[in-house]
Amino acid sequence: MADVSYRELSLNGLWKNNPAIVQLLGLCPLLAVTSSVVNAIGLGLATTLVLVISNTSVSLIRNIVSDAVRLPAFVMIIASAVTCIELLMQAYTYELYQILGIFLPLITTNCVILGRADGFACKHSLLPAMYDGLIMGLGFALVLVFLGALRELAGSGALFANMDLLFGPVAANWKIVVVDDYQNFLLAILPPGAFIFTGLIIAVKNIIDARIDARRAALREKPVKGSKRVRVTGTIS
């Protein structure tokens, strides 16, 4: 299909149809691992990569796989991709791999990935599918990172702690202590905090959307009232 607008795709993935805060997909990793920025970046990158790979492969085989068995096939592809990523992380960022633990293999069951594979990639050609995977992954990762930052800040009064787990020794002193002598606010680090902050993010997004809509509605012309009426009784002689 040629009529795919990349601009539209980007807007969808990052804002209008954001997988994390609009579609509310993949909540399990979203809530579980976003206790710090580094965790969020790690999982976000992993998910994005898997998304790109899976969307690409699904798009490639979309004309071969029959409709009835498409889901098992997709899951297989995703599982393979996840395994590759997991092995890579194990090799290069071992500590982070250990922190993320079960959530790395669980990317397989992340609904975002299957959702995009089934909802988009299997109906579109290679390039759009690949781009969609990338943007959706970025949208997801952005929310992850934002949430992680919020929680890290509220929970421990600092930001970007332990970045060396992901970026190597260079990043060891990236940590910014925002509030000195902070009493750790455990609630923010624990899963309830994730729910609360996700809720707040969604609320803020809805407020912004409502403002935009209101401004647009004010600009748009009012259609004529009752202009679409038809006669149900045929012609009248």
């Binding site: 009835a68 068995v69 889901l71 098992p72 096939a73 899951v75 297989m76 599982a79």
Partner: peptide, 14 residues
């Protein structure tokens, strides 16, 4: 194992 599982579930879905 995976292919087997895939085949079984595919058949079921179909």
């Amino acid at each position: 194992a995976l292919v087997g599982l895939g085949a079984v579930f595919g058949a079921l879905l179909g």
